[in-house]
Design a protein around this nucleic acid. Structure first.
Lengths: 221, 221
DNA sequence: GCTATACCGGAGCGAATCGCTCCGCAAGCG
DNA sequence: CGCTTGCGGAGCGATTCGCTCCGGTATAGC
């Protein structure tokens, strides 16, 4: 065997396939949730199952990579929000961007895969950025004072996954997808208006703790 | 064979089992969504699979019955709201009650079962009641004017299904269930505040049409 | 008590689907 | 051409599905 072997002949195709796989995985995961199958992902990517398993040794490894990307997307949205000088506009940008990112694949598979270092790192940075966004908005008096960062993240998660959109996709009713997106935008606007100061009355109960987020990535069923 | 045979020996037990089955089916459906299995339902009800299939000839028949009950619950919530003299309190009651009912089993199985006459009837009455609730709130000037009944129903659906609660249940973290419920109550309050008149700005896009609701009960994948 | 009967629980069937392996083949390079 | 490299997908064992079927059990009448 020679020292420097031949250059990879079909390397470009491999790279294209990898990108297609990640995109398809994201879509299928958003569609089928925790029951997304590798076969369906490969098919949607227009790639053989064999190629998928050459790139990722297991399904879990693929999902971990996907989570890392999704977490980075959320982080970017938060940091873009911070870059806006207007505290309210920055916060609103984070909320709408996060929701527009779609079910970033996180929710459905939380607790089903092991955490990687990259996931932990991005997650911590994102939490910090969101905390800063909330703090700044509070200081400026544009965010109702009894809303915490945990409230905000839970609200986003709640609005991210849409039963309606999911089902329409599953039925292949792409003709209604646009209407469904528009409907969700309206709901998002309603929720955002509910976040503005001043609040007509304080929120019920105690503020949610962060253990609701951390605990869910622990061992599954 | 004599004309009038013996009376049923174990009829009371059969009735108890039926109620347990419906309750269990509701819970499992809320937990596992479209992938709820009859075995799990029977187990949760503390009843054999055989007994389930003696009462309901197929899984679909059980789900249809469940849907009828859930639709009646929603209808009752709407009519209770109308019974309240205060337009806003009535509307808020409908929203919070619907959400508290939990994922009434409707969303997850929409499109997977055939519609019964009872389902259609309840559904129509419920739609009329909600329309009246919205109209009355508009007339009283307490509901932001650009919100339609369809907006409201979509908002409720969006808040009904909680990824967080579902996952915690699946992990058996009953210790966090209370915190999760409280967190959702806060989010519901935020959304309700966003619905109050006057609105800081009009909602984006066109009002959603009702075809988003009707179309989803059509033939599945 | 005993018998007849209505109802119970669950082992287990065939079918479907899962994650994943393995291998014959095609495409690009010298 | 020969060699390498990545490709697609048939198919494996395991699991899970909806559902059937039957031996057993509790109860009402005698």
């Amino acid at each position: 065997m020679t020292e420097h072997t031949r250059r990879a002949p079909r390397q470009a195709e491999a790279e294209r396939n990898d990108r297609a796989l990640l995109q398809a995985a994201r879509e299928v995961l958003a569609l089928d949730g925790e029951h997304a199958s590798v076969a369906r992902i490969a098919e949607r990517a227009g790639v053989g199952i064999g190629s998928l398993y050459r790139r990722y040794r297991t399904k879990e490894e693929l999902f971990q990579r996907l989570c890392e990307i999704a977490l980075d997307d959320y982080l970017a949205a938060a940091e873009q929000g911070l870059a806006d000088d207007d505290p309210w506009a920055g916060l609103a940008h984070y909320v709408t961007s996060s929701i527009a990112l779609g079910p970033g694949s996180l929710g459905p598979i939380a607790g089903t895969i092991a955490l990687t270092d990259a996931m932990n790192a991005s997650s911590e940075r994102a939490d910090a950025a969101v905390a800063a966004l909330v703090e700044r908005a509070h200081a400026a008096g544009v965010l109702r004072p009894d809303v915490t960062a945990a409230d905000l993240e839970l609200l986003i998660e709640q609005l991210t996954k849409s039963p309606l959109v999911d089902q329409l996709n599953r039925q292949g009713r792409t003709d209604l997808a646009e209407a469904a997106r528009n409907a969700r935008a309206r709901i998002t606007a309603i929720a955002l208006d509910g976040l503005r100061a001043p609040a007509p009355h304080p929120l019920p109960g105690d503020p949610p703790g962060y253990e609701l987020f951390t605990e869910r990535w622990k061992p599954a069923t």
